[in-house]
Computed example of a mutant assay.
Amino acid sequence: MRQSIVVSFALLCFFVLASFNGYADGYKRATSKDPNTFVSGISFVWLSEFDSQGLMFHNKFSHYLGERVAVGLNLGLLTASRYDKGKEIYSIKNTFYMGGLETSVDLIQKETINLRLGVGGAARHRSEINSDAEEGTVDGSVAHIRTSDIGFNGFMENDFNFLRSGVAGWRIGYNYYTNGTPIFAIGVHVGFKF
């Protein structure tokens, strides 16, 4: 009886160590490809509600949790406007300070190229100058709007690896918020893995 307990305990230890070793090998494969990425990018944005266009600058840090799943933090600044040729003024001027937490999954993962889809929560502080009759006043004076909104974002992005740890690519994203205009953005980024 005592001998069967020792054999059972030895087999249990063997299976525990074997499963831990398999987990460690999987983790090593996932993290040996530089699990952290930092990129800076610029995007052309279109704000559908006000029919205005502009630029968004963003910085993103992401960390791989496994071989294909990553989480990240994205911070950005957006500026957009619409020029009214009839009134010869900017009828809309937007400045947004934006941030969000993102989760992404790599659909294609090769040595030189990655393609991923992602979603996440988003928040922004917006400062707008608006001369529309609905937001401003009928006589054409402007309304100053300063508020914060929350929402979500979805994106598809691609990374091309170059040199030892360089990354360059493109990103298409859509941000929807509870108040204010949604944002559609197409842009490029460059950064590094570490």
Rank of each mutant, 00 (worst) to 15 (best):
S148L: 02
N158E: 10
F96V: 07
V167F: 04
H125I: 07
E111Y: 11
E111P: 10
G191K: 06
G151N: 10
Y176D: 06
S165I: 00
I92G: 02
E102P: 02
D132A: 10
G180K: 05
N94S: 04
G140N: 08
I113D: 09
T181R: 03
E128D: 11
S127C: 06
G180Y: 08
V105Q: 01
R146M: 14
R116K: 15
R164P: 00
Y176W: 11
G173Y: 02
S148R: 07
G187L: 01
W170C: 02
N161E: 10
F152C: 02
R171S: 09
T103R: 03
G121Y: 09
G121H: 03
E111R: 14
N179M: 03
G173A: 15
Y176L: 05
Q109Y: 04
V119D: 01
E134N: 04
N175D: 14
A143G: 10
R126V: 08
A122Q: 13
V167A: 12
A123Y: 13
V138H: 08
G136D: 00
L115W: 11
L101G: 15
L115F: 13
I172H: 00
G136A: 09
S104W: 04
L115C: 04
L101C: 08
G151T: 12
I172D: 01
G180V: 03
F160Y: 15
F192Y: 12
W170V: 06
N130D: 15
A123M: 14
G140S: 09
D149M: 06
F160S: 08
L107C: 05
G140Y: 06
A143Q: 10
V105S: 00
N179T: 13
G180D: 07
F96P: 07
F160G: 07
H144P: 00
F96I: 02
G191T: 07
V190H: 03
H125D: 01
S127V: 12
S141K: 06
D139N: 14
G187I: 01
A133N: 05
I145S: 08
F155Q: 09
G166F: 10
F152N: 00
A123Q: 07
H125F: 08
V190F: 09
V105H: 03
G136N: 01
T137L: 02
I172C: 01
N179G: 06
E111I: 07
H189K: 14
I129K: 14
N153D: 09
T178R: 13
I150A: 12
A185G: 06
N179K: 11
Y90F: 15
M156D: 00
V119I: 15
G118S: 11
G191M: 04
I186Y: 10
G169P: 07
I186E: 02
A168K: 06
N161R: 14
G154M: 10
A143W: 00
P182N: 15
S141P: 00
T178W: 11
A122I: 07
E111F: 08
V167K: 14
Y97M: 11
V142I: 08
E134S: 11
Y174T: 00
N130Q: 04
A143D: 04
D149W: 05
K93W: 09
G151H: 07
F155L: 06
